[in-house]
């Protein structure tokens, strides 16, 4: 192997190591998802994101009417009450989420009620 080839191999290995390092930094490693879930109580933004994720996961799991305009809004109506609106032809499906926020680390959905706004 000549000197030029050695330099090229070193450069390739170096670039590969750098790529892996950046990926680990960005994802926070293998425990990234778990760490995020445990951080729900860190601050208001973290808790909001946890609540909205729970609502979105619930919609994804429960709603079979996948057509229409999708989720057009999720708004906080009171401390522990959130409302998601799903646009459909001629109406909106409204899902109201009563949240349990007593355990700041792990927000839970306490109750879901469904209603409809017709146009």
């Amino acid at each position: 192997m000549n000197t030029g080839a050695k330099i090229s191999l070193t450069a390739i290995l170096g670039a590969a190591c750098l790529t892996v390092a950046i990926a680990v930094l960005l994802t926070g490693g293998a425990n990234a998802g778990k760490a995020k879930k445990e951080d729900c109580s860190m601050d208001a933004i973290s808790q909001s994101i946890c609540v909205y994720r729970l609502i979105l996961d619930d919609i994804d799991a429960k709603v079979t009417m996948r057509g229409g305009g999708g989720v057009t809004s999720i708004i906080q109506k009171s401390d522990d009450l959130f409302e998601a609106r799903l646009a459909q032809e001629g109406h909106e499906d409204i899902r109201s989420y009563q949240m349990d926020l007593t355990d700041g680390d792990k927000p839970k959905i306490k109750a879901v009620t469904e209603s409809t706004k017709s146009y």
Partner: peptide
Amino acid sequence: KWFGSHEHLYDSKDINSVEKNRD
């Protein structure tokens, strides 16, 4: 891709076949 229609307000794509639900 989508517009919120109702009985007196349609959109040009309302005559297309689109996914409405999942069985």
